[in-house]
């Protein structure tokens, strides 16, 4: 009986979580014509890629997708390049300033994106970076960096320093010890940090919209054309933005708990 009630609750919540995703998928795969019907059918009657292809062929959508991808990948690389060594230092060394540094990281996480974006737009205008994917990459890296440092630190803590010392005793240089011993063990965790960074960048709208004019990322493109685009376009846009999320979470599932468990302590 108790088990049954439990399942009822779980199924109810699952329906609430899944229904919108189902509906947006349904809408995205309906023809323009059937979207104008009323009432809308709740099951696919006439599946069509018309709406989606219309969305994809709108100006700026493909380019926005490419920009989003570029920005996301560049952000991942840059954030790891800068964040990994810092995470390693936090994990391995008891140095003066370690505590303040971690506080600084936490503080930066509390800064709203909008506070940075407006002045950054001005700064980038004067430095010629405005309206480039680099500008967005820099902003996203700054946003992702604190989390990257905290996650990678947690990952490195899990590899005992004695293993690195052992490698050095047996003839490895510090760099070799890191590459051969620490990296292979840290890789899954680092991959999780990378995916996390990518998701953050892929989803970020406001900063990207403020820092660019023509080089929009996909969400920025959708946002800026929102008020004068037809419903079909918006549904297709919503669908396009949701699909990667399903993938990301599937990849990340194992690490979600670890990540939020460790980064917040």
């Amino acid at each position: 009986m108790r088990r049954f009630a439990l399942q009822v609750f779980c199924v109810a919540i699952s329906l609430f979580m899944a229904a919108p995703i189902y509906l947006i998928t349904l809408a995205a795969f309906s023809s323009r014509e059937s979207l104008n019907e009323f009432p809308l059918p709740l099951v696919p009657t006439d599946p069509s890629t018309e709406t989606l292809s219309g969305f994809l062929s709108s100006t700026g959508v493909i380019a926005g997708g490419v920009n989003s991808l570029m920005v996301g990948l560049n952000t991942v690389v840059l954030a790891l390049l800068i964040g990994l060594p810092a995470g390693y230092a936090v994990a391995r060394y008891a140095f003066r300033g370690r505590q303040p540094y971690q506080l600084f990281l936490l503080l930066t996480r509390a800064l709203p994106i909008v506070v940075l974006s407006v002045p950054l737009a001005r700064i980038f205008l004067t430095t010629g970076l405005y309206d480039t994917t680099y500008a967005v990459t820099l902003l996203h890296t700054a946003l992702a960096l604190p989390t990257t440092v905290l996650i990678t630190a947690a990952v490195f803590v899990a590899v005992s320093p004695e293993q690195e010392e052992a490698a050095q005793i047996f003839g490895a240089s510090p760099v070799q010890a890191f590459v051969r011993i620490v990296m292979p063990q840290a890789l899954p965790g680092i991959a999780a940090a990378a995916v996390f960074t990518f998701v953050m960048s892929w989803n970020e709208v406001l900063g990207a919209a403020i820092l660019t004019l023509n080089q929009r990322t996909l969400p920025a493109q959708v946002l800026s054309t929102l008020s004068f685009s037809p419903l079909a376009y918006r549904f297709a846009g919503g669908f396009a933005l949701v699909v990667p999320a399903l993938l990301f979470i599937a990849i990340m599932r194992k690490y979600l708990l670890n990540m939020w468990g460790t980064t917040l302590k």
Binding site: M17, P20, V199, N203, V222, R234, F235, V242, M252
Partner: peptide, 17 residues
């Protein structure tokens, strides 16, 4: 937890439907 990776813009569009 799927919505964890969904942006607020996308969520808005989803519920718009």
């Amino acid at each position: 937890v799927v919505p964890l990776a969904i942006s607020d813009l996308a969520a808005g569009l989803v519920w718009l439907a």
